[in-house]
Every structure is written in structure tokens, then in C-alpha cells.
């Protein structure tokens, strides 16, 4: 059954600081995301959503609990069972609220670097990059510097990069916060499409109530705890 799960977390807990300043940012977060499934994570600011996402993304290990990616136990508490950096490169794509791109590279290079870091030849990486940018509708901006791109274009380039190495997991933290509702919706639908087409498990942290029907499952987070997922049709109803 694990083969079908893109992401599985078991009892993730994160404690920041110690003693008086101790903050429990996340407690006992247990979530399962199938391949091709897109889930939304809702919740007020400070609920622990980013903490959860960065734990799953292997950039901020939990204090305790386990993270499995594609059925492989990757994090057991703070202990890494694989080489995290190369594992991230191969299996995880990230999109954040802003500042996703390297400013001294063009749109194309921002995507291409991810492919080349994973060993693709410059020629193949370039071809694949142009396909991705085409797919995301920003091919005409390929040679522009990142500062020349609008917020929406930047997010789409970041999504192209997240998709570049065909990851089994895509994590997005408020990717539409900087976009208007029309653009925001487009981006959300894009996630849905790539999840279904590329067979990736996608977790999107969002505040945007209007786009919820795009998601397969919706989780809510409050005070570090995640409620059981609800199917999105019920939530909308």
C-alpha cells in the first residue's frame, strides 16, 4: 500500500527553543497523500503549516515523528536516513510565496539549473526547460531576468522548476499570496493538472477559500495539530 503513497507522515512534532521559550509548533501531525492527489492545508497564521511543510520537504527536520516519501522512510525524528540534499533534488519540488528564483539567472536558467544539478546534459536540460516553460505559458519570458517578470510569471517559472526533475512530491507554501484571484486560480489548477499528469503528491498551503474545489482533500491546522482530511466536495458544500 505504501507504494501508492507519495507522502506519509507519522506523528510529526516540532518543538522550537527550550525551557521558557519553548514553542510546540507542530504536534502529532499524521497525513497521507497518494500519488496524483492534491491536498490543501488551511489554517490561521502561526498554526504550524510552514513548519509541517518544511518537515515534509526535508529542510527542517521534526523533533520526533517520521516522514516517508514514496514509501521510503526518510526522516526518523531529526535523524536523516538518506542523503537529504540529493534526495530533495530528485524527489521534491518546492514553490514558496515569494523569492523563489535566483536573481542572477534568467527564467530559463532558473529551471535549467535544477535539471543540470541532477546530471542532465545542458542540451537536454535546455530542451526540457523550454517544454516546461511552454507548458506553463511563460516560454516567451524564457530569456528575461527574474526582476523583469510579474509575480504570476515568477510563480509559474518556480512551478516549472519544481516540476523539472519529475518529483514525486510537490510542496507549495502560499504560492498564490502575491497573485490576484484570477492568476491564483490558474496556478492552483496548474497544480491539479501536474499532479494528475505527473503522478505527484501535492500539498498546497493556502488562505484562499475561493479555490478550494480544485483540491482533492482539505486539511486544517490549528495550534500545531492537523484535523482529519475532508473530501473537498463536502467542504465546499
Amino acid at each position: 500500500m505504501n507504494e501508492h503513497l507519495a507522502i506519509e507522515t507519522r506523528g510529526l512534532t516540532k518543538v522550537y527553543g527550550s525551557g521558557n521559550t519553548e514553542v510546540v509548533a507542530m504536534r502529532d501531525a499524521t497525513v497521507a497523500v497518494r500519488r496524483g492527489e492534491v491536498i490543501a492545508l488551511l489554517g490561521p497564521s502561526g498554526a504550524g503549516k510552514s513548519t509541517f511543510l518544511t518537515a515534509v520537504g526535508l529542510i527542517n527536520p521534526p523533533t520526533s515523528g517520521q516522514v516517508l516519501i514514496s514509501g521510503v522512510l526518510v526522516l526518523d525524528g531529526p535523524i536523516a536516513l538518506v542523503h537529504l540534499r540529493s534526495f530533495r533534488r530528485k524527489h521534491i519540488g518546492y514553490v514558496f510565496q515569494k523569492s523563489n528564483l535566483i536573481p542572477f539567472l534568467s527564467a530559463r536558467e532558473n529551471v535549467q539549473i535544477a535539471l543540470q544539478l541532477d546530471g542532465a546534459s545542458p542540451r537536454r536540460a535546455r530542451r526540457r526547460t523550454l517544454e516546461l516553460l511552454e507548458e506553463l505559458g511563460v516560454a516567451d519570458r524564457a530569456e528575461n531576468g527574474t526582476s523583469m517578470l510579474s509575480g504570476g510569471e515568477q510563480q509559474r517559472v518556480a512551478i516549472a522548476r519544481a516540476l523539472a526533475n519529475d518529483p514525486s512530491v510537490i510542496l507549495a507554501d502560499e504560492p498564490t499570496a502575491a497573485l490576484d484571484s484570477h492568476r491564483g486560480r490558474q496556478v492552483m489548477e496548474l497544480f491539479r493538472r501536474v499532479a494528475h499528469e505527473h503522478g505527484a503528491g501535492v500539498i498546497v498551503v493556502t488562505h484562499d477559500q475561493r479555490t478550494l474545489e480544485v483540491f482533492d482533500t482539505i486539511y486544517e491546522m490549528e495550534d500545531g495539530a492537523i484535523t482529519n482530511g475532508i473530501h473537498s466536495q463536502e467542504a465546499v458544500r
Binding site: R85, S86, L117
Partner: peptide, 10 residues
């Protein structure tokens, strides 16, 4: 940019 590079697995 360096953090970002590390994030995407450089």
C-alpha cells in the same frame, strides 16, 4: 540564492 541552491539540492 545559496540557500535556494541548497534547497533544490545543489
Amino acid at each position: 540564492s545559496i540557500a535556494l541552491l541548497k534547497l533544490i539540492g545543489a
